[in-house]
Amino acid sequence: MQKRAKDGIVFVDASLCVGCKSCITACPWGVPQWDKTTGKVLKCDYCKNRIDKGLKPACVTKCTAHALKWISAAEASELKRVQYAREIAKEPV
């Protein structure tokens, strides 16, 4: 399990995973998943290979309802502020 310095994405290098499951027991969010077929841990890496090519994660690209968005933390908090403001002002979103 490693963290990329440039954007903070946490990912599993499968060639280095020995399958001890320590990360599964330690993670308070229950995020790392056990892959029985490979005997290694899986974790969402935000499709970092796609991100590096300037693309969005596969789930965001293919979400039929456009419910998922790929935005920065600053954009997310801006979005939330606007949503709450509209809710308080009873303005339709």
Binding site: C27, P28, Q33
Partner: peptide
């Protein structure tokens, strides 16, 4: 730290 299985840890948090 909580003694939870991975499934319950996801639900709890």
């Amino acid at each position: 730290f909580k003694n939870l299985c991975p499934e319950c840890a996801r639900h709890y948090y």
